[in-house]
Design a protein around this nucleic acid. Structure first.
Lengths: 223, 223
DNA sequence: GTTGAAATTAGTACGAA
DNA sequence: TTCGTACTAATTTCAAC
């Protein structure tokens, strides 16, 4: 690695592209698994871990980058140590046909770590990291509220981040315990009590899949 | 870098720790900014970009790792290319006093990319990546439903991920356009007056901050 | 797809400002 | 503290197998 290491084939990974450029085999996935845990590992060490030759590792490594399967390498930073100890989720209802504006405005907000368009009651979910609660409040009321495309917002604070994995990969199948649903969980706690019984009936009634239309209108009518 | 590069001073970064181990100055933040964009950059190139000597860069680099400000380095992977094209958010209501079990079960689910404890209507938000919609359904109904600690769930699908930044850093202040809507914020947020502006009243009425108690009970009563 | 050797680069240790 | 330099070790590239 010399310098910026910008992805040379980014152009090929642009949205709208359909075809898959690269067939990912088991070796590719293994490489990704290692790289996910240690993005700074040398290709030589990577080859040893995956069990392939160095030249092969270099080839595949470069192919994964060129294909776009590996977007980039980054450092996981402790935001609390970095001075941004407050994390909040802002659910946004967007005025129809103002999506383009909404996205443009959002792109100009560096405090936004994540933004996804969702089904369900709201239209988008924004995750922000701030120095304090007041900053979140200011962000919502002064900035988001000023965007015409934003019809309404709902903010919740994140109290703790239990799990944070860089990226889930296929093959991340529950190798541990749990999961085997109706079957007897080995180490899993709670004996058959509330949920799935011996017969394996899962209480679906308490589960909700929220479609795009449901629930709308509660925050819809605003000034 | 030799091999796995496990953080040597991880012990000092364990949860519960209060004091700040390292005062982050402007140079540290600059290093983090570069590393966030290119986690595989060599320390030599890093030094050049930040404008410090190589020796200094090595010292600070190691200090940031030892302190825990840099948690680890990782590869950003295109999940669609990796075969996990469906992303969903699952909002979970957790039975009180069963949090420990909930967290333990969650830890055994590798498909979970992110899980945060939140205020608001629900208690936790889980983000999962799956190969297809059916897998999400199976995950919710067969796995989550089987956890006694899970009282109810609400699932929404992510249609598009507009913004995805590795980590927000202080100094990520809106330098672009936009935002300057009603109030002329200099740099930092949290101005004295929460909203307002010259003559610009911000419609606070459509904004909602959702506390921990509000809205509870809708999904609370289940079988 | 693999192995081995050459050239380049990275990481370390030291003294000086 | 930070910088500059020299030394050692490792990585990457390129070749032939």
């Amino acid at each position: 690695m010399t310098e910026t290491s910008s992805n040379p084939a980014r152009g090929g990974a642009q949205p709208g592209r359909i075809g898959i450029g690269l067939e990912l085999d088991a070796t590719h996935l293994k490489i990704l698994e290692v790289l996910r845990e240690n993005g700074r590992i040398s290709v030589a060490a990577l080859a040893e871990r995956v069990g392939i030759s160095r030249a092969n590792a270099y080839t595949r490594f470069e192919a994964l980058r060129a294909d776009g399967a590996i977007r980039r390498f980054t450092a996981e930073i402790d935001h609390v140590r970095a001075g941004l100890g407050i994390t909040a989720l802002i659910f946004v209802t967007v005025r129809q046909q103002m999506w383009r504006q909404f996205r443009a405005e959002l792109a100009a907000m560096p405090e936004v770590e994540y933004c996804a368009i969702t089904t369900g009651q709201h239209d988008a979910m924004i995750q922000v990291r701030m120095a304090d609660v007041a900053a979140v409040h200011a962000m919502v009321t002064e900035r988001l509220a000023g965007i015409p495309a934003v019809k309404a917002t709902e903010t919740v604070f994140i109290l703790d981040e239990v799990i944070r994995r860089p990226y889930v990969l296929p093959g991340d199948r529950a190798g541990g315990r749990a999961a085997r649903r109706t079957a007897p969980e080995p180490t899993g706690p709670a004996g058959s009590g509330s949920a799935a019984g011996p017969g394996g009936e899962v209480p679906l009634g308490k589960m909700r899949f929220v479609g795009a239309a449901e629930g709308r209108g509660r925050l819809q009518r605003d000034g």
